[in-house]
Design a protein around this nucleic acid. Structure first.
Lengths: 213, 213
DNA sequence: TATAATTAACTAACCAGTTAATTGATAGGA
DNA sequence: TCCTATCAATTAACTGGTTAGTTAATTATA
């Protein structure tokens, strides 16, 4: 082993804080996330948070940076394995879906930021979101040039994809609850797993982009 | 006139509080909305807020109830003017879009609630959202029975419609800002108005529901 | 005159952030 | 191998400001 277990480990403490901050911020939102509670969850002294991240905003920024870089890398990596725009598009949707499901703090944090127009820190959310969107937009543009996509407005389609996926992840508990009290005959997709949802979205988005007639 | 201008008017005060609470909650979110600031905006004493609405949660509930009832009535009314499922669906999308654009607190509040799974008050958001969804779901079901819609999963399509529209409204300032710094060639639909966006969604959702081949 | 509406002033809890003191790891010298 | 000086990591205790919510007194209305 490269590092024995020691009482003091800056990297470990930092990572611990980020990990718990991710879930705390996504559960409660920026304003309601208490640094006292965070320290308690970490089993660390509150001052450590400020020692490593300067202030609450700095911590939040670090959390968001990590989250956004992670998803961006996952998608960029996956994207390299394809060459045809249709496959790229499908890969984008499936990778995002899988990642969002495995890291449910992402949809919660993203929706909160987007519903605020990035009130907490516009700049970096901005550039990161922009890059993800640029990738998506590029796929569609190349597809249109090759003649395999028709009438694509990237911005709207982008929000259609990530909006739907984010909502399907964050509302899962709500939809499960709705399924229990089955007074009306409503299918809330409570049993659907994320792969089925991604399947459906892929089919429908493809259908949308096909030349009509 | 039925009522002369008077210094004391319970209904007027109540309404004033609700009006300002709508914008305050949607701007800042539940946690960051200060009751001191609300009172100031209303030009009333803070105690009035608690006199009429018991506590912060009570006020928020009243605000959400009003907002959700309003949009529900708008859509239900509009829906009566159609008979064909395709027209009903189109009406649903356009009415929601228009309402969301004219009352931008709705998308902000809804996205915040949905990203929380209704952390602030599950029950009533729940029933109200359920009724709106039930209407949407009904339209699709009737359309499928008549043979004009194919392969519809109402829950996913519902989030696709309201997710996209809510995001397009809440991110408007962000997209405008992105359009200014045009270092990459990205179209963020900054100039699109809500009618154009609704047009596009209507076309694409219809295309999605057409029988393939 | 009774009651509903309104107010100023208060409280107790909470929260982000600070500070000064303490503890643990470690590298270098004897 | 031990001693020690240094610095990084950690802590308890504190501060000033904000917040939701209360209360008891006051004013307007019918």
């Amino acid at each position: 082993m490269s590092k024995k277990v020691q009482k003091r480990d800056a990297e470990a403490s930092k990572a611990l804080i980020i990990t718990h901050a991710k879930s705390l911020f996504s559960e409660k939102g920026y304003a309601s996330a208490s640094m006292d509670e965070l320290a308690q969850r970490c089993g660390l002294n509150k001052a450590m948070v400020f020692y490593y991240f300067k202030n609450k905003k700095g911590l939040y920024e670090a959390v968001m940076r990590e989250v956004l870089i992670e998803i961006q890398e996952a998608i960029t990596e996956e994207n390299k394995t394809h060459s045809k725009p249709i496959e790229e598009l499908e890969g984008f949707i499936r990778t995002y879906a899988r990642y969002a499901c495995e890291h449910p703090y992402l949809p919660a944090l993203l929706l909160k930021e987007l519903s605020d127009s990035g009130a907490v820190f516009p700049e970096m959310l901005f550039t990161s979101m922009r890059q993800l969107f640029a990738l998506f937009s590029d796929i569609l543009k190349r597809g249109e040039e090759k003649g395999c996509f028709d009438n694509a407005i990237p911005m709207i389609l982008y929000f259609m994809v990530i909006g739907t996926l984010n909502l399907m992840v964050t509302t899962k508990p709500l939809r499960l609850k709705a399924a229990e009290l089955d007074d009306i005959d409503l299918d809330t997709c409570a049993a659907c797993d994320i792969e089925e949802i991604a399947d459906y979205i892929v089919i429908k988005i493809k259908q949308m982009l096909k030349e009509p007639k």
